[in-house]
Design a protein around this nucleic acid. Structure first.
Lengths: 247, 247
DNA sequence: GTCCTACATTAACATAGGTAAGGTCGCTGC
DNA sequence: GCAGCGACCTTACCTATGTTAATGTAGGAC
């Protein structure tokens, strides 16, 4: 049993036994499975639950009228989709499975209960929300300022480090289920150029990517070409500071 | 007295007299002024307050090691910068004034007080946070999929509609203090191309932009070239649904 | 074993948008 | 009055990346 959410939240704060049990319970409650490529929720629907990804990769995406598709975010194991979404009337984007995924639905009631009885979890979930926002901002920088090579390198660094935080890497390798088409839809470039760019990274021995497995022999080197600064992931434990009354 | 925050939040929910007084009090409490181009908070600093923009325009931005700068978001009158930021150890980006601005600092204590006594405000502030996140996502789509003309048109539509929600437009015009350099840093394009693109929009009578004033004679037409869908701004009042016990 | 599909790869060519350089205009300061 | 500056506009040229389309390859269905 992997419990990537607990693993990730502990990068931010220490959780009590009761906290962890609560999280396990939540994650076990309403589990749904989706096939690869299936939509978990679609633009226009009314959001009723917070989704927690237990296993597999998913993504947020938006499609323009003329069919162009942009992947807006990736959800990796342990990621939550939008605390508080139920405030909104309808989804302005879709969430789709990339691989087969297992998702837990967290109802408004379960969420409120958790927020009331578990201040540490509450705090940790806000942290996770702020980090998700920071990632989205960094993607803006990525698309706006970096060229294709930097952009690709940056994405690979980010995904690898996030997978590491969730306990989904071994040494310098991880599963990597994205197709070149999906990479293109993420980075705003054509599949042809994705291919060229990956070749270039391979050629410089910055990555090994084969059979849906990514290996990054020298993460620092890849970060250097990406102008990657991990500060936006806020993975340093010092980040926490609870009020005395929350102890 | 304009009170753009109240004006904006009322696009989402109805506020009681007490709610409004609370918001006025908060906005009047710790007011600071900044000159155009001055930083309100800088990357690396520890965030201690939530900033509320009362007057003027500001922006979030990030700078890469080699000097490239990306504007990540605009803060218009009535906008809040990051509920809950104080959870994080340090800022991963900077916030800077574009025009001279007046900003209210909201302390953690004031924020907590407001959250406890005013469920409607709480709800409305989460709505504003979710909208800010939706805007950031739309910028990702903008940078990833739209070409220069669509991108520029999209940004202008968004800014105009947001200004309208805050009560900062008159008819089809608004103040527009951004330089072409800043537009370039926002849209990930060179100033030369910003200029070309603006010329093109002017040539098609989609915009009039002169002396820091923007006029959009036909918003729908501009939305059409931008492939602009305003759903992500969630400005429809129906969006609200409070629990009975919050009434 | 053959067919089918999804994905990766490559090449040849086209273009959106970047770079560099310079010019105009209207302020501000002195 | 004029030097200096910031915003803006323009032109000529160049390059990163897109487009189209052909080819390769591996796995699944039967």
């Amino acid at each position: 049993m992997r419990r990537p959410l607990i693993r990730k939240l502990e990068k931010f704060t220490r959780l009590s036994q009761a906290d962890k049990e609560m999280l396990v319970r939540i994650a076990a409650h309403r589990v749904r499975r989706f096939a690869a490529r299936e939509d978990i929720i679609h633009e226009g629907e009314k959001p009723e639950f917070i989704n927690l990804i237990n296993e597999g990769w998913a993504c947020r995406y938006k499609t323009l009228e003329d069919g162009r598709r942009q992947i807006i975010a990736f959800f990796l194991p342990g990621d939550l989709c939008d605390l508080n979404v139920f405030i909104l009337k309808e989804m302005d984007h879709s969430i789709g499975a990339i691989t087969p995924v297992s998702v837990s639905e967290i109802s408004r009631a379960a969420f409120d209960e958790m927020m009331i009885g578990h201040p540490r979890i509450t705090q940790a979930l806000w942290w996770e929300t702020l980090v998700a926002a920071a990632i989205q901002r960094e993607w803006t920088v990525n698309l706006g300022q970096r060229d294709a090579l930097e952009r690709m390198a940056h994405l690979l660094c980010e995904l690898f480090i996030r997978l590491e935080a969730a306990g989904c890497t071994s040494d310098s390798s991880c599963e990597f289920p994205l197709t070149q088409t999906e990479l293109g839809e993420t980075l705003g470039m054509s599949t042809v150029h994705v291919n060229r760019t990956l070749q270039e990274l391979r050629g410089s021995n910055l990555i090994v990517l084969k059979d849906r497995t990514l290996t990054i022999p020298n993460l620092q080197a890849l970060q250097d070409v990406a102008l990657f600064n991990p500060n936006y992931l806020h993975l340093d434990r010092e980040g926490r500071h609870l009020d005395a009354n929350e102890e």
